[in-house]
Design a protein around this nucleic acid. Structure first.
Length: 491
RNA sequence: GCGAAAGUAGCUCAUUUGGUAGAGCACGACCUUGCCAAGGUCGGGGUGGCCGGUUCGAGCCCGGUCUUUCGCUCCA
C-alpha cells in the first residue's frame, strides 16, 4: 500500500516533469482539483479520444457522433432530475463531523416524535410544516434555528453542535447574457454535469436527419462539470472533466440483452489496448440511480486501488420520457420492423437506452499508471535505472525520435530528411544534444516507442538503427522501410 | 468540512542550537566522447509559499493565511 502510494506520487511528479499534466493556474498556487494537460499530455489525451471515437463511430455502422454545446436550456436539468435531486441543503455536526441533509435530519426527528404518542405526533406535523415553508424560502438561518430550538441531535455524537446550513450544488451555474443581474433566476444556465443530455435532446434530430434505424447509437466526447464536495486524487476526480459517452437506443424489452452486450464490448475495448485483463473487474450496482434499471462499472486497478473507470447503465426510457413531458414534444420512434409474435410492425414507442460512459481523464490515468515503470538495469559493474512509459504505440505522444549520432559529418542533414519524410504521417521528434544513451532514456520517459539513429554507416548504405523502447533492442533497417514499420505499429 | 504533515533553484534535497543560502540533476556556451543516463571548463538561475510579529539580526522562533499530500467525511 505504501508502495502503491509512492508509485502514485511518482506518476504525478513524472506527469508534471515531462509535460503531461500541470496543476491549473499554478503561478497563483493552483486551483483545487483542476489540472491542465501539457504538450505531452494533450497528445496522449487526444490519441485516447481518437481511439475511442474511431472504435465507436467508424467501426460501428449504426453509431454516429455529435458535439453538443455545454450550455443547455435550463429546463433540460429539471427534466433530467439534476436540479431536483442534487442541490440539497446540508448541515454538519461539529463533534462527529457527520454530514446530514437537512430535510432528512428533521424528518428523522419527526418520525421519533410520532412514535411517542398523539400529542408528539401533532408536534411532528407542525415541525414538518415549518420545515417545508422554510425550505421553500431557502431560509437556512430559519432552518438552523428550527433544528436548535427542537434540540435535534446528531445520532453519532448526541450533541446539538451544528455548523451553519450550506447548500451543495452539484451543478455550476452562470448567467446567460451580458447585462443581466446575477440573481435573476430566469437567466441562470448550468454548465452541463453530464454530456448525455445533449444526446437525448438531439435524439430525434439525429434519428431523422441520419435516417437511423433502431437499434442505433449516438456518441459524444465533451467536457462536463460537477461541484464535487471533495475532489481529490489527481485527475481521478476533477471538477472539470471530459466524458466519452455513447447512448444506444433500443426497442423496449431488449434492454437486458443489449446491456449485457455492451458490458462485454466495452471490456473488450479496454483489452484491445493490450491492458491486462486482471487489472479490470465489473462492479454491479445494487442501489440504482433514479433513471436506471441496471448498472455496472468497469473498474480498473489504479495505484490507489480498484476504482470506477467506465459506467454501463440501462437508463430505460426515463430521459426521453422526461424530455417529452417537459418539452411537450413527442420523443417517439416509429418502428417498421415486424413483430413476429403479432405479425405487425412494432409501431410507435419511446426507445430504451443503454449508456456507456467513460471518463477520459480516468482513462488517461489508467493508461499512464499501467505504462509507468521504474526499471533497475544495474549490472555488476554499474548501477543503472530508467523510467519508461510503456504506452501502446498508437497512444504514444511521440511515435518516432530521429537522432543523429553526432551533430556533424552530415548526419543531422540525413536525420532532417527522415523527419521531413515522416512528420506528415505521425508525430516525430528530432534531437542532437547529449549522448545517444541519454537521448534514448529521455524518449523512454516520454513513452516514445521508436528511436532511429543516423550514424556514419548510414552515409554508405542508407540504413539506420531502430531502437525499440520496451526491449531496448536495436536492429538495422534501411531508411525507406522506416515509415512503414512505425505505421504498422500504430495502426 | 475535520485531523495530521509539508512548502528552500525547473526537479530531488541539504543548511546542528536564529548571524542575510548550498549540492546533484536539469538548463546555456565551449571542449571531449560517440549506440543505452549522470566526462571537463565556464555560466545563468533563489525577495527561502504569502502576510505580520519577536529580535541588533529569521529559511530557522511565534501568529495568521494560502496551497499540496495523507487519513476521515461526502459522492448518480
Amino acid at each position: 500500500m505504501a508502495n502503491d502510494s509512492n508509485k502514485f506520487q511518482a506518476i504525478i511528479s513524472h506527469c508534471k516533469e515531462y509535460g503531461f499534466i500541470f496543476p491549473s493556474s499554478e503561478i497563483y498556487d493552483g486551483l483545487q482539483a483542476v489540472y491542465d494537460y501539457g504538450q505531452m499530455g494533450s497528445e496522449l489525451k487526444k490519441n485516447i479520444k481518437d481511439y475511442w471515437w474511431k472504435s465507436m463511430t467508424q467501426l460501428h455502422d449504426n453509431i454516429v457522433g455529435i458535439d453538443a454545446a455545454i450550455f443547455m436550456h435550463p429546463t433540460t436539468w429539471k427534466a433530467s432530475g439534476h436540479v431536483e435531486n442534487f442541490n440539497d441543503p446540508m448541515i454538519d455536526n461539529k463533534d462527529s463531523n457527520k454530514r446530514y441533509r437537512v430535510d432528512h435530519l428533521i424528518e428523522g426527528f419527526a418520525e421519533e416524535l410520532r412514535a411517542k404518542g398523539e400529542k408528539e405526533s401533532n408536534e411532528a406535523d407542525n415541525l414538518l410544516g415549518q420545515m417545508e415553508s422554510l425550505l421553500a424560502k431557502d431560509d437556512f438561518a430559519g432552518l438552523k434555528s428550527l433544528i436548535e430550538t427542537n434540540n435535534i441531535k446528531c445520532a453519532v455524537s448526541d450533541t446539538c453542535n451544528w455548523t451553519d446550513i450550506r447548500q451543495f450544488n452539484l451543478m455550476f451555474s452562470t448567467e446567460f447574457g451580458s447585462t443581466v443581474s446575477s440573481d435573476d433566476e430566469d437567466n441562470k444556465v448550468y454548465l452541463r454535469p453530464e454530456t448525455a443530455q445533449g444526446i437525448f435532446v438531439n435524439f430525434l434530430n439525429v434519428q431523422k436527419t441520419g435516417r437511423m434505424k433502431i437499434p442505433f447509437g449516438i456518441a459524444q466526447i465533451g467536457k462536463a462539470f460537477r461541484n464535487e464536495i471533495v475532489a481529490r486524487q489527481f485527475i481521478f476526480r476533477m471538477r472539470e472533466f471530459e466524458q466519452m459517452e455513447m447512448q444506444f437506443f433500443i426497442r423496449p424489452g431488449t434492454q437486458k440483452e443489449w446491456y449485457e452486450k455492451w458490458k462485454t464490448t466495452r471490456l473488450e475495448w479496454h483489452k484491445s489496448l493490450g491492458m491486462p485483463a486482471e487489472k479490470y473487474r465489473y462492479h454491479d450496482h445494487v442501489k440504482l440511480a433514479h433513471y436506471a434499471d441496471a448498472a455496472c462499472d468497469i473498474e480498473f486497478e489504479f495505484p490507489i486501488g480498484f476504482k470506477e473507470l467506465e459506467g454501463i447503465h440501462s437508463r430505460t426510457d426515463f430521459d426521453l420520457k422526461q424530455h417529452q413531458e417537459f418539452s411537450k414534444k413527442k420523443q417517439q420512434y416509429f418502428d417498421n420492423d415486424i413483430d413476429p409474435t403479432t405479425g405487425k410492425a412494432y409501431g410507435n414507442y419511446i426507445p430504451y437506452v443503454i449508456e456507456t460512459s467513460i471518463g477520459l481523464d480516468r482513462m488517461f490515468l489508467a493508461v499512464m499508471s499501467h505504462a509507468y515503470e521504474e526499471q533497475d538495469l544495474s549490472t555488476a559493474e554499474k548501477k543503472d535505472s530508467r523510467v519508461v512509459l510503456k504506452f501502446p504505440a498508437k497512444l504514444s505522444p511521440i511515435k518516432l525520435a530521429v537522432l543523429p549520432l553526432t551533430k556533424k559529418d552530415g548526419l543531422p542533414e540525413i536525420a532532417e530528411q527522415i523527419m521531413a519524410d515522416c512528420k506528415a504521417d505521425f508525430r516525430c521528434f528530432y534531437e542532437e544534444k547529449d549522448s545517444i544513451g541519454k537521448r534514448y532514456r529521455r524518449m523512454d520517459a516520454l513513452g516514445t516507442p521508436f528511436c532511429v539513429t543516423v550514424d556514419h554507416q548510414t552515409k554508405e548504405d542508407n540504413t539506420v538503427t531502430i531502437r525499440h523502447r520496451d526491449s531496448m533492442d536495436q536492429e538495422r533497417v534501411s531508411i525507406e522501410k522506416l515509415k512503414n514499420i512505425v505505421l504498422n505499429a500504430i495502426a
